[in-house]
Design a protein around this nucleic acid. Structure first.
Lengths: 338, 338
DNA sequence: CTGAAAGCGCTTACAG
DNA sequence: CTGAAAGCGCTTACAG
């Protein structure tokens, strides 16, 4: 069923049919009603492609993330999706697996499809690369720290790492080690930098930085290695909750008392932080809000092209310390079940 | 930049340009090379909408899930995405929030966009509703148990609930209670049915079925209520790991020994099952595989319309028991860190 | 308020 | 192997 057929059956021109779709106020109420009736009767829905060939917007945005399985991206996706739905747009979701070539391929692809805009979570995207992909003048929002040339939003890992380190120092811990996921989370760099800055400011000697394979298991193995070969630090600041959980498991196996002998803190404030013993001190990240902010920025760009003309905007979201018991904190601060 | 301009610059007709895009073997190697060169120089990419207006396939599939944030859906999404990418298709992802009206709206919308096919995770979709949305003759795969009229795939919750109950009985537990998430996971019904069947077959009296709010907290509160008001069952079979973790936390607070006095088992085999003490016996679900299977079924339908003519196909995936210590199992069966 | 016509950017029989 | 032309299904000035 197409517009011509509808026009024939309604005994009007295709122009009139098209008008009830696009500018209903321009057509006489009676004819309009009649045409709508014919459309309904035939379950007619205009061909999307033919339509978009003539129209500017596609009501589609693209979202590229390193991988969908990552717990954090998942919340970002949900945040973007919720805003997009409110705006009447749908989301084309793509996984880049963190590979730049794959990012480029997908960027070209979504541009090809004339999406209204693109949100991309990436750690190595520059305006120059964007230009190469033909996205130079499109609405685009980066999730992550860009080169300052792009509209971007990200979580302030540096600042919170500073605060967490400071917190541990405040509890009397001196040698604080960092344990990071070697699968190059883009957050490693800012964490290291915040951590170092805090130690410098407090005039405390820098601790060791350990790299581990990702996840519970990676944290476990790294911690056991550390326990076996080095003098025990006073605290381990892990780059993810999973790593921290692994450290806790290792500590239990090796008889290292947490938090008396060793403080352990994590990074994602996952649900399970409250369950483990002792409860894990961690960092709450506004992941869903990050997605929502990115989407809002994007729709600002889409709806008002002028904004893009101005200096690119950067939105920085602040995470929060969630103090529990694994850091050696004595005061009652946070309890989930009351 | 459009095809006409490329044709002009390459001094050929648009037909020839179009041919190097669609049937390169039909154009002389030299002209082809020349045209490709001109295209590359201008960074030309054909208009997707104009193209799809003439072509049959859009290389896009739609995936509707109740919500993206759910840990299980997330893996399903990843599974679908990985297969789609291999097939050169992209995924239009939509959240239905489990609301039928929203499902209908989105189904119409994606159909509108001429996607090649649709995968929908739903607990109340019928072929009849599909027909109403105009998707009657489209390639469609249901994730969930359908009305037998649709191609579908799902996880056999009934069977695994039977097995888990049987396992608990085998360990000498007699009164086994069920603890379910009241936010109507569609899996509640099959779990109840498998559980009841196992007790019937073993000629053991049915236990109680408790409904709880979702998550850790829901499990915790429900368990504390149970401990305070009823005689303790021998085992609690929780409908999700989070619920089970909540029960474990409650048991610790109330001094109920797990597994000596009370066995607890969960349902998702989340990463943390190995971390808690005692390690949580649970059920491993092939969620990612579910997504992959759904996508494969869909591409079968897309690539060979004949298949749809035959009787609708149903694929049932089998989950696996992950026996650990919280059920009172004595033998060494499973250990993550060795 | 309505219609005839040109145009969006492509693809593909049809002739040569 | 290549080109002129019709057509995909819509939208929107332009006239009336």
């Amino acid at each position: 069923m197409n517009i011509k057929e509808i026009a024939r059956q309604a005994q009007v021109s295709v122009a009139t049919v098209s008008r009830v779709l696009n500018h209903p106020e321009l057509v006489q109420p009676e004819t309009r009603a009649h045409i709508l009736e014919v459309m309904a009767r035939h379950n007619y829905t205009p061909n999307w492609f033919a339509r978009r060939l003539n129209l500017a917007r596609t009501n589609t945005i693209a979202l590229l993330v390193p991988n969908i399985e990552g717990g954090i991206n998942q919340k970002v996706v949900a945040g973007v999706e919720s805003v997009a739905t409110k705006k009447g747009s749908t989301v084309l979701l793509c996984s880049t697996h963190g590979r730049p070539e794959e990012e480029d391929r997908l960027l070209r692809m979504v541009f090809d499809r004339r999406v209204d805009g693109v949100i991309c979570s990436s750690s190595n995207l520059t305006q120059a690369r964007l230009n190469e992909c033909g996205l130079g003048s499109s609405a685009f929002v980066l999730i992550g720290q860009g080169d300052g040339e792009m509209t971007a939003c990200y979580i302030n890992f540096e600042g919170i790492a500073y605060k967490m380190t400071q917190h541990l120092l405040g509890l009397g811990r001196r040698r604080i080690d960092l344990l990071l996921d070697e699968t190059g989370h883009s957050r490693n760099d800012p964490i290291i930098s915040g951590y170092r800055r805090a130690l410098l400011d407090a005039d405390v000697q820098q601790g060791h930085i350990h790299m581990a394979a990702g996840g519970l298991r990676g944290g476990y193995l790294a911690a056991r290695r550390l326990f076996a070969t080095e003098t025990l630090p006073d605290a381990i600041f892990a780059g993810s909750d999973d790593l921290a959980f692994g450290v806790m498991k290792a500590a239990r196996d090796d008889g290292v008392d947490i938090p008396a002998r060793l403080a352990v803190v994590g990074f994602d404030d996952s649900l399970l932080c409250d369950l483990v013993t002792p409860e894990l001190t961690s960092i709450e990240q506004p992941s869903k809000r990050l997605g929502m902010v990115a989407a809002r920025l994007l729709f600002d760009l889409i709806e008002d092209a002028q904004i893009a003309e101005t200096v690119p905007q950067e939105v920085v979201l602040q995470p929060k310390l969630k103090i529990r018991r694994s850091c050696g904190n004595k005061k009652y601060i946070h309890e989930l079940f009351d």
